[in-house]
């Protein structure tokens, strides 16, 4: 709705001769000014996102019949995801569904992504800290330096990792030449660990940037004040720096977690036969399996799961922050 009311106003706001009354209105109404600022973004979002999204929601209630779509509304697609049945166990957890493959792959993808995100954010924080507080004169240089490797194609970087971890790869050849092993190690590549390593390489720079941004804006006088009050470096970090940089950590975690859940390319490239993910199945519904309704339902299913985890995470972090403030 915002875009409808805000649209024409933008035109007015840009044209120079503003009526005095309009200006007064603008100054008075916080929300109105906010919406005007938001309008361009919301318009783009509305046209390119809301319309497709509504389409997807609608599609998830239809049925694919070969190349036709049966437009009768049905919950069949959702039911096929969670219909109880004999099921399987995965990682010792029972999945009592008739088609457990969807839920199992979802859990697998979420776990993989959680592990990757934790590793990446933990590795990113000290680097961001370094750029924000130590690299005083060369901040821009460092920022670009960490992104430049990403400008060579993703695919080439995956090849590079295969060369490092592979059968006759850098790591194996190195270990053999110094006599640690005799035969190439097979477990380096084509397994979940290789996926985590490759994802870390791909996303680390992405995770560093938001943390850096929020560390950068911390008021240095606060840190001095903490030192003056006799806080040790560690205490100062825990009481001042870390809480103040939390928005960046949160952004960074979300930025890595959310897209990697649906990633199906990296696992397919370096994950070996175990490299199938929920994203693989969804992608197949829009491709080879040609079942858009099921693909849509699975996408929504995945989105709900991710949203739930994100909310849980934000709620947990929020609680911590409140506690920290109270203390």
């Amino acid at each position: 709705m915002a875009s409808v009311t805000g649209g024409p106003l933008v035109g007015h706001a840009r044209s120079r001769p503003l009526s005095q009354r309009f200006r007064a209105l603008l100054l008075r109404s916080e929300a109105l000014r906010g919406y005007i600022l938001l309008t361009p973004t919301l318009l783009v979002m509305f046209l390119l996102l809301v319309v497709p999204l509504c389409g997807m929601i609608a599609f998830s209630f239809f049925t694919q019949v070969y190349f036709d779509i049966d437009f009768t509304l049905t919950l069949k697609n959702y039911w096929s995801i969670i219909k109880p049945g004999a099921g399987n166990t995965y990682l010792g957890i029972p999945f009592p569904f008739e088609t457990p493959v969807y839920t199992i792959l979802l859990v697998k993808s979420l776990l993989m992504s959680l592990v990757a995100t934790s590793v990446i954010v933990l590795m990113a924080y000290p680097m961001a800290y370094f750029i924000a507080f130590r690299a005083t004169n060369h901040k821009f240089l460092w920022l670009v330096l960490i992104t430049v490797p990403l400008w060579t194609s993703y695919l080439l970087r995956v090849f590079a990792w295969k060369v490092i971890l592979g059968h006759n790869g850098v790591l194996n050849s190195g270990l053999i030449s110094i006599g640690v092993i005799e035969e190439p190690l097979g477990f380096l590549l084509y397994n979940p660990a290789a996926v985590i390593i490759t994802l870390t390489h791909a996303w680390l720079a992405f995770a560093i940037l938001p943390i850096y941004v929020s560390l950068e804006k911390i008021d240095r006088s606060l840190l001095e004040a903490a030192t003056d009050l006799g806080d040790s470096k560690l205490i100062r970090f825990l009481r001042v720096t870390l809480p103040l940089s939390l928005p960046g950590v949160i952004s960074s975690a979300l930025m890595v977690f959310i897209p990697t859940v649906g990633d199906y390319v990296t696992p397919a490239q370096v994950g070996g036969t175990s490299g199938i993910m929920i994203g693989t199945i969804i992608q197949r519904q829009f491709g080879a399996a040609n079942n858009w309704p099921l693909g849509s339902a699975l996408s929504i299913f995945m989105m709900l799961a991710v949203t739930a985890i994100v909310c849980l995470f934000l709620w947990g972090v929020g609680n911590d922050r409140i506690k920290a403030r109270g203390a």
Binding site: L49, P52, I282, Q283, S299, M303
Partner: peptide, 11 residues
């Protein structure tokens, strides 16, 4: 605004 992150790129 965060939604595009959640949608499969193929979709």
């Amino acid at each position: 605004i965060m939604l595009p992150l959640l949608l499969p790129s193929l979709f």
